[in-house]
């Protein structure tokens, strides 16, 4: 069983929901990433999504784009991100690590090379934002072969046919993007979420994570009423950029803890 599947199985046993924070690798600086990853775990993260910076992050809003630009200023590339994953693994053998990014850096490295290196770095899953299922049948199969879960996005606009396709190609979990827009947009339509999730459940036994638009303990708690996992990205990055980089670890922890508490209550 993969680390991700194990984690969801043990959460289910204790009737808890997964908290999945997202940060961009290399933001605010490459040295900060591994300490931040450990801090996320200490504050209650069950799985971590680590963003791979890309020059043209089409699906991201201004907050995540800014974090990517800060990382790119430090020259952080996919190779460095894999190095950070490897370093994280030396102290944490249990928390699943998912890389999230765009296709081009992966293709530039070479798909097979990337998957090999990711596996040996201890990466458990990968979300390639601009790889819809119909463009990456081969990639998804290779990833599964390498023991890495290919994780796909679903949107409010996804049709039944798309949900089936994604359910067939994906593993680990499905990532439901809870609003029409880019990451970090302001509004979250909870009624839309609770309407769509049963529809997705009908097509798959994979756990369902919900992200895009979750900003605080209350919205996280309400999303967790129907979802298996709650993803928090932009709001967390705002904490990172809100003050001195040296205190980012403390800020991230105190932001995440109440959300963990709300999910467990």
């Amino acid at each position: 069983m993969s680390r991700i599947a194990e984690r969801f199985a043990s959460l289910r046993k204790s009737a808890r929901k997964a908290l999945i924070p997202y940060i961009t690798a290399g933001d605010p600086s490459p040295q900060m990433t591994v300490p931040l990853l450990h801090a996320l775990v200490e504050a209650g993260a069950d799985i971590i999504e680590l963003g791979v910076p890309f020059s043209d992050p089409m699906a991201d809003g201004p907050v995540i784009q800014r974090s990517g630009e800060r990382a790119l200023k430090h020259g952080v590339g996919l190779k460095d991100v894999l190095g950070m994953g490897r370093e994280f693994r030396t102290r944490d053998g249990a928390t699943p690590l998912v890389l999230m990014g765009y296709a081009n850096p992966i293709e530039a490295m070479g798909t097979r090379v990337f998957l090999d290196r990711a596996r040996s770095a201890g990466v458990d899953g990968v979300i390639v934002v601009d790889y819809p299922p119909e463009e990456c049948t081969e990639f998804a199969a290779l990833a599964k072969e390498a023991g890495i879960d290919p994780i796909f996005l679903l949107a409010p606009t996804s049709t039944e046919k798309r949900i089936d396709e994604v359910a067939r190609c994906g593993s680990g979990y499905l990532y439901y993007v809870s609003l029409r827009g880019v990451t970090g947009a302001a509004h979250l339509d909870l009624s839309e979420v609770s309407k769509k999730i049963p529809q997705i459940r009908a097509a798959t036994r994979l756990p369902i994570g919900v992200g895009f638009g979750i900003r605080d303990a209350e919205s996280a708690r309400r999303v967790a009423e129907t979802a298996d996992a709650v993803v928090i990205g932009s709001r967390l990055i705002q904490e990172i950029e809100a003050g001195a980089p040296a205190d980012a670890v403390a800020r991230v922890k105190s932001f995440l803890r109440p959300i963990r508490k709300a999910l467990d209550s």
Binding site: M58, A59, A103, V129, D130, Y131, P132, E134, E135, F152, L153, L154, A155, T157, S158, T159, R162, V166, V177, R180, G181, V182
Partner: peptide, 22 residues
């Protein structure tokens, strides 16, 4: 049918855009 010119072209977009393109 899916927009490929040999290995080029295609529809490499986030899921949020798939329906609009459809």
């Amino acid at each position: 049918e899916r927009g490929h010119f040999g290995p080029y072209g295609g529809v490499f977009v986030a899921e949020t855009l798939s329906q609009a393109l459809e």
